[in-house]
């Protein structure tokens, strides 16, 4: 056989890997990304006339994902990318069609100069999606910045539910996931790692403590659920003490002062006025 030229080789690599969507209502447009579990394509739903994203999973992953896909497809939450349809390609690979999210991947978004409140907002949105999914019995298993998108209006989308990544970033995966089945506590670990990832260089100690608690090596030492972690994040935002961090009296005083700056300033102004009037009254 004649040796394959570079151009023929490239052509073969593209066409052999491209999903065969004959028999479905989708028409392939182009590849838009590759992840640890499969390839994502933009496609058009011919019946509804809308653009969708088609994710084609490796055959071996697809077999374990099929049941999970049904559960995930039933999740309706603003931060969970809806799955429209799942199916099997003629070559045995599983695919699912989902909302095509046009936005910025979070690892790119986080590299911008964002305020702490914006960073925490994103973490809270992700946490809310996790809490909702857990309440329905679904676990993400592979939460990481690459699986989160920020839409054009700042909306947060969490994607790639239910499939444990292969080549994903190990920093976000709970230690027990290498030997045991992941449960909601593994997601809490990942959320803690995600919080740590989102924190700026100068990190408030209370937030570091929240992340550290969520990332405890022992699952039983983490937050009991995502709601508890979100509550601590809310307490931090409100200037209240958080359960994960034991403050020294000085730190408590600093926090109280920071939270009540205006009031303390006004009281100080009143005392200053009184002091001034009392000690300099002879001049009036």
């Amino acid at each position: 056989m004649k040796a394959l030229s570079d151009s023929v080789l490239e052509h073969l690599r593209q066409v052999v890997d491209a999903p065969d969507l004959t028999g479905t209502r989708y028409e392939l447009e182009r590849e838009i990304g590759r992840g640890g579990m499969g390839v994502v394509y933009a496609a058009v739903d011919r019946d509804l006339g809308r653009r969708v994203a088609i994710k084609v999973l490796d055959a071996e992953i697809g077999q374990t994902f099929a049941e999970e896909a049904r559960l995930i497809a039933s999740l309706e939450h603003p931060a969970i990318v809806p799955i429209y349809e799942t199916g099997t390609l003629p070559d045995g690979r599983l695919f699912y069609a989902m909302k095509l999210v046009e936005g910025t991947r979070l690892d790119a978004y986080a590299s911008r100069d964002l305020s702490l409140s914006e960073r925490l907002r994103v973490v809270r949105r992700v946490g809310e999606a996790l809490a909702f999914a857990h309440s329905r019995g679904a676990v993400h298993r592979d939460l990481k910045p690459q699986n989160i998108m920020i839409g054009g209006f700042g909306e947060v989308y969490v994607m790639d539910w239910g499939v444990e990544g292969i080549a994903g970033t190990p920093h976000f995966r709970a230690p027990e996931q290498t030997t045991a089945i992941a449960d909601h506590r593994s997601d809490i670990y990942s959320l803690g790692a995600f919080l740590r990832f989102m924190l700026p260089a100068r990190r408030p100690r209370a937030l570091q403590a929240i992340a550290a608690k969520a990332m405890s090596t022992e699952p039983d030492q983490r937050y009991a659920d995502v709601a508890a972690m979100l509550l601590d994040l809310q307490r931090f935002a409100d200037g209240l003490p958080v359960t994960a961090f034991r403050e020294t009296p000085w730190q408590a005083a600093v926090r109280f002062t920071s939270r009540n700056r205006v009031l303390l300033g006004l009281l100080a102004a009143y005392l200053a006025v009184r002091f001034f009037l009392y000690f300099f009254r002879r001049f009036f």
Partner: peptide
């Protein structure tokens, strides 16, 4: 389509 599928296998 069949050829490409089979080649992939």
């Amino acid at each position: 389509a069949w050829a490409r599928r089979t080649l992939r296998e």
